[in-house]
């Protein structure tokens, strides 16, 4: 039996193969090209996919053709004549993008809720049962202080305001003249600062009146179609 002393080896352990670290490993030139090509292909595919997604996100729906004066029927719903503006939003109750529009409406009301009468109409398409329009969006809108939520059977109110896309907002001055039409989100389903909201807030704070020169503020509206028709292109 070999003594422990004799078994002490001071020679480099022949079995200690050099540690094959990433430094010691050599990747062939051909492999590097394959790797680079694979990464480039992958990068192109994912960036292309992100591009398609962004393009969809930034594609607005058809703009409204709102009447320049507030239709009389709506005006009758105001309790008293006052100097507040009238804000109307038309919403498809199932549109996921309009969740952001409702959230932005909440912000608007938080800033200038005391200066506007706000009403949200939820579309109930022809043939659908009563209550079809009462969705999560309805409940979210209803929860905003100062907002009145109403059903829009057969889309009559949407048609009256020329709205084609869910999330459409129209703003009239105290005399019923059109000040603003458009959306209050920056992209489909995206919350956050946007031009439409900024316009509405500034108009409300100024207690603006229509200039009479036809200068109506407009912004793109992002959402599902209210009616079964092709979406207008940008």
């Amino acid at each position: 039996m070999r003594s422990a002393i004799e078994s002490i080896s001071l020679e480099p352990d022949a079995r200690s193969s050099p540690f094959r670290s990433r430094v010691a490993r050599r990747i062939s030139k051909a492999s590097r090209w394959w790797i680079a090509g694979g990464v480039a292909l992958w990068g192109s595919a994912v960036l292309g996919g992100m591009g398609v997604l962004w393009a969809y996100s930034e594609a607005p729906g058809a703009s409204a053709d709102a009447p320049s004066r507030l239709p009389g029927g709506i005006d009758a719903l105001r309790a008293n004549a006052d100097d507040k503006l009238s804000l109307i939003m038309l919403v498809h109750p199932q549109c996921p993008c309009s969740r952001a529009s409702i959230a932005e409406l909440s912000r608007v009301m938080g800033k200038v809720g005391d200066r506007v009468h706000a009403r949200v109409f939820f579309l109930r398409p022809e043939g659908e049962a009563e209550g079809w329009e009462v969705s999560d969006l309805w409940k979210s809108a209803e929860a905003i202080p100062g907002v009145v939520v109403t059903s829009d059977p057969n889309g009559e109110k949407a048609a009256a305001f020329g709205a084609k896309t869910s999330g459409q907002v129209v703003l009239y001055d105290a005399e019923g003249e059109l000040l603003f039409e458009g959306g209050i989100t920056s992209a489909r389903g995206h919350e956050g600062d946007n031009d439409g909201e900024s316009r509405i807030v500034s108009l409300a704070r100024e207690k603006a009146h229509a200039s009479g020169e036809g200068a109506v503020h407009r912004s793109p509206v992002f959402g599902c179609g209210l009616f079964e028709e092709p979406r207008a292109e940008r």
Binding site: L53, G189, L226, E228, E229
Partner: peptide
């Protein structure tokens, strides 16, 4: 959960977010 369907009036389709 957030965006399963896209709508045009009564017509619904799978939302592009699901495919994405």
């Amino acid at each position: 959960v957030l965006s399963p369907r896209a709508w045009e009036g009564k017509v619904q389709s799978t939302h592009i977010h699901v495919y994405a």
